[in-house]
Every structure is written in structure tokens, then in C-alpha cells.
């Protein structure tokens, strides 16, 4: 199940940049118990203008997975996000787009 949920979130694109949330490194924890999914995530900036969209997209995508009936999201700021949290795929995608990371 856990693998399936991570795969689902790797289909959710950042609303501003051509990279998915898993490769962007903003998903800190993901667990499931009796159809309830708990997500810990952060944003790349405290003033992230896309925060509402990201929360909507994560919730909407996870609820589409079979067996998921509730999604609880906690936004965390510790540890703070840095570019070091990008996966190699994420780094390649952003560099191809023209962002120095």
C-alpha cells in the first residue's frame, strides 16, 4: 500500500514548476491505517503562493486510490526544505526548465 501511495503522489505536479512533489522532496512522511492516510509535507517557501492548490491536489489524488477513505495532511516546517531535498530526477527536470539548483 505504502509504495502505491508514494507512486500516486509522484503523479502530482507542483502547480508552478514542471516537477512532481516526490521528486521536489516536499513529502516528508506518508502512512496509512484502516483507509486513513496521514501525510506530512512542507512547502519550498513559507509564503508559497500555491499552498492551497498543493493541499487540494494531494488530497484529491490520494482519495482516488482504492481503499483510501480519508486523507489527513499536516504541514510541517522542520526540517526546512532546501534544494538538497530534490531527487536527481527532480534536479534534472528543474535544470532542463532553466532553474539553477
Amino acid at each position: 500500500m505504502s509504495e502505491r501511495l508514494w507512486a500516486a503522489l509522484s503523479e502530482v505536479q507542483d502547480p508552478e514548476m514542471p516537477v512532481n512533489l516526490v521528486d521536489l522532496g516536499v513529502i516528508y512522511a506518508l502512512s496509512e491505517c484502516d483507509g486513513v492516510v496521514d501525510v506530512e509535507l512542507t512547502f519550498t517557501a513559507m509564503g508559497c503562493p500555491a499552498s492551497d492548490f498543493i493541499l487540494d491536489d494531494v488530497r484529491e489524488r490520494l482519495l482516488r486510490e482504492e481503499g483510501v477513505r480519508e486523507v489527513r495532511i499536516q504541514v510541517v516546517w522542520n526540517p526546512p526544505w532546501t534544494a538538497a531535498r530534490l531527487t536527481q530526477e527532480g534536479r534534472d527536470a528543474l535544470e532542463a526548465w532553466g532553474l539553477a539548483v
Partner: peptide, 17 residues
């Protein structure tokens, strides 16, 4: 215009949502 297109998409999303 590469980046401009991605950003305009974000504006559209705000409008539509």
C-alpha cells in the same frame, strides 16, 4: 517565454479553481 508559459498556467489555475 519558456518560464512565462508555466507561470501563466498557474494564473489560469487560480482563476479556474
Amino acid at each position: 517565454l519558456n518560464k512565462v508559459m508555466a507561470e501563466e498556467n498557474f494564473h489560469l489555475r487560480n482563476g479556474r479553481t
